[in-house]
């Protein structure tokens, strides 16, 4: 593992809420532990800013809802800020899932009809640096 790889791993871990990571592959071993101060300050930014779109409620994820066409969940497509990505059915309430910023849809982590927690990452979007 070279320095840039190590940096990439650190940046990735920093973008999550993981506190400690062990990694082993052949002869290579890697142990990363976040210090309290670092994790709470949150000043370090990953080089590639992928942002998670979190579920706004606890409920069932839907790509469409009556009267609306289903949302396009093709990975790689461009998104506008506030664009609908789906809905959460919380009892009788239906709450929209919206893109928090303009960017590119990178990963879809959810399927139609799945139960989701509040705050659960549903999508990862790539946001241009500086946004």
């Amino acid at each position: 593992m070279d320095l840039s790889q190590a940096k990439q791993i650190i940046d990735f871990i920093d973008s999550t809420d993981l506190m400690e990571v062990y990694w082993e592959k052949g002869q290579e071993r890697f142990h990363f532990k976040k210090s309290q101060e670092l994790s709470s300050s949150g000043t370090r930014l990953p080089s590639k800013p992928w942002r998670a779109v979190a579920s706004p409620a606890v409920g069932v994820f839907r790509l469409g809802k009556p009267g609306y066409p289903g949302c396009d969940d093709t990975e790689g497509r461009d998104l506008k800020k506030g664009e609908k990505l789906g809905w959460i059915e919380m009892g009788r309430k239906v709450i929209p899932v919206e893109s928090p910023a303009a960017g590119r849809l990178r990963r879809v982590l959810i399927q139609e009809g799945e139960a989701v927690h509040y705050g659960q990452p549903l999508f990862l979007i790539e946001v241009p640096t500086g946004v």
């Binding site: 409620a57 606890v58 059915e89 009892g91 509040y118 705050g119």
Partner: peptide, 25 residues
């Protein structure tokens, strides 16, 4: 365990819809 909302209780422990949704799921 189900995460039902943000910190303020009005949106979590006092939110009837969210609690019933977690119960159903």
């Amino acid at each position: 365990a189900w995460c039902i909302g943000p910190g303020p209780s009005a949106q979590s422990y006092l939110c009837v819809e969210a609690i019933l949704s977690a119960a159903r799921l």
